[in-house]
Computed example of a mutant assay.
Amino acid sequence: MSLDVSVPDPPPQSQGAPGRGYDNVSPPESDDDDYRRDELESILEAGAWADGFEAWAAETSLGESEFELLVRHGLLEQLDFYWDPATEAVEYHLPQFSDDMREALATDADVDEVKGGLDSLGRTVSERLEREYRT
C-alpha cells in the first residue's frame, strides 16, 4: 500500500536536544554535546527528507486520514533527528501524541498503528541522513 500525498516541509532541527519533551528519555547531561542539528537540518533540506519521505510513503500502511491527523497535530514538524556522539549514528525521537490526537483515533490499535507509521518514517529518514552524513 502507498500513501499518495505531497512531501511536507522537513522538520526544523536547529532547536532542542534529545530528551526535551519526550517520555522515557533522559535529557543530555550537558548542552555542550554536539548533536549536529544544523548540519542535519541542511541535509534534510537538501533532499534527505524528501527521499526518505517518498520511500516511506511508498511502503506505509497509513491512509490519508491518519496522515492528515499527523499533519494537523504538528507531529511531523516535531520529529527530532540528531547525531548521537555515543553511538556515532543519526538517531531520532518521536513526539508525544496529545490527548486530542488520541481522541481523534478510534481505538488504541489505531494509536499504535499511527505511532508505528511515524516511527517508520523517523527510521527511514534517519537512515537516509546517516548515509548522507557519513559520505
Rank of each mutant, 00 (worst) to 15 (best):
M1V: 02
S2K: 01
D4H: 10
V7Y: 11
P8F: 13
P10L: 06
P12C: 05
P12W: 05
S14E: 14
S14F: 10
G16P: 07
P18I: 04
P18D: 06
G21T: 00
Y22K: 12
P27S: 06
P28Y: 05
P28H: 04
E29M: 12
S30T: 15
D31A: 10
D31W: 08
D32N: 11
D34S: 03
Y35L: 10
Y35D: 06
R37L: 12
E41G: 12
E41V: 08
S42F: 04
L44D: 08
G47Q: 11
G47C: 10
G47F: 09
W49S: 12
W49I: 08
W49C: 11
W49H: 12
A50W: 08
A50N: 14
G52T: 07
G52S: 12
F53T: 02
E54N: 14
W56P: 06
W56T: 06
A58N: 10
E64Q: 13
S65A: 14
F67Y: 15
F67W: 15
F67V: 02
R72F: 13
H73S: 11
L75N: 10
L76P: 06
L76C: 09
E77W: 12
L79N: 07
F81N: 00
W83V: 04
W83S: 04
D84L: 01
T87C: 02
T87V: 09
T87N: 08
V90I: 15
H93I: 03
P95T: 11
P95E: 11
F97M: 04
F97N: 00
M101K: 05
E103L: 09
A104P: 06
A104L: 01
D108S: 14
D112L: 13
E113C: 02
V114W: 00
V114K: 00
G116I: 04
G117V: 00
L118V: 02
D119N: 13
L121I: 06
G122A: 03
R123K: 12
V125E: 02
S126F: 04
R128V: 09
L129M: 09
E130W: 07
E130C: 03
E130L: 07
R131S: 05
Y133I: 01
Y133P: 03
Y133V: 08
